[in-house]
Structures are given as C-alpha cells and as structure tokens.
C-alpha cells in the first residue's frame, strides 16, 4: 500500500491540451503574461478551431499513453468561425459516452470554454484537471492498444 502510494506520488500524468487559436490559446498566453502558475503536465497543441478536433485525435492520444486530454475553445456564441465550437461540443460529448463504453473514465477527457481574456480561468482549468488526473492515476485501458 505504502509502495503504491509512493509510486503515485512520483508519477506525473501526461496531458494533452488542444486549444483553439483565437480564444483559448490567447487565454493561455494571458495566463503567462500574468505569471499565473499551473502544473507543468500539459502539452499544448494549437488548432485553428476547437471544431477541428477529430474524435480520432482523442482516441489516438489515449492509445499513445495520454492520461488526460483537454479541449478548449471560445465560449458558445463567440466562435471565430461562427459555430465551430458547437460542432466540437456536440461531437465530443458523444465521444464521452464512447469512452465510458470502452472502459476509459470519460473524466479523463474534458472540454472547457476559455476566452482570450480569461488567463485566470485557463490556469484554474489546467490546475483542477491536472489534479483530477493525478487522483485518478495512470490511464492504462487504451495505452499501447493498436
């Protein structure tokens, strides 16, 4: 038990964050400009719109061994491409059901809306999500599955 706990403490989750270019990426920039601190586990991949995120990316990332995945876009109604974030929301909500069905806790996958002015919110979202994944431990269900 003690050993397991120790292993959990040492283990650091790998998290991938897909951020849209116009809101969330810029929000993450503001978090930086404001020198807000958040856990360093997230690896950011910029996409032009959250609607670009293909469910395949999420599954692939879990296969490659990601422990948590975050998709963040403009607030509903604020999409730079009019309605891309609605597409993302609809599509990726369905994916959550699929993940649960496959035995991957869908809490490992999160969507958020962070605007370009919400540096604080971005830092909070990443911090909360990272801590949550840390609690959940490593993702093993899809890791290495071909």
């Amino acid at each position: 038990m003690t050993q397991e706990n120790e292993a959990k403490d040492e283990w650091e989750p790998k998290i991938i964050g897909f951020l849209c270019n116009w809101c969330s990426y810029t929000g993450a920039d503001l978090a930086g400009t404001s020198r807000l601190q958040y856990p360093p586990n997230i690896r950011i991949i910029k996409v032009m719109c959250s609607g670009r995120v293909n469910p395949q990316f999420i599954l692939k990332a879990f296969q490659e061994g990601a422990d948590g995945i975050l998709v963040s876009g403009c607030h509903p109604g604020d999409c730079h491409y009019i309605e891309g974030n609605y597409h993302a929301r609809r599509k990726l909500t369905l994916l959550m059901d699929l993940l649960d069905y496959m035995g991957v806790d869908s809490k490992r996958f999160q969507m958020s809306w962070v605007s370009a002015s919400e540096g604080q919110k971005f830092a909070e979202v990443v911090t909360t999500f990272t801590n949550q994944i840390k609690e959940m431990g490593p993702q093993t269900k899809l890791r290495g599955v071909k």
């Binding site: 920039d29 978090a31 930086g32 020198r35 601190q37 958040y38 360093p40 950011i44």
Partner: peptide
Amino acid sequence: VNIRQHCSWVHSHN
C-alpha cells in the same frame, strides 16, 4: 513554439 507564456512564465518555480 511558445515556451514563454506557455512554459517559463507559468512554471517559474521548477
């Protein structure tokens, strides 16, 4: 690659 706003400024303690 944004290693300032997304890295050095937000992980300045380690």
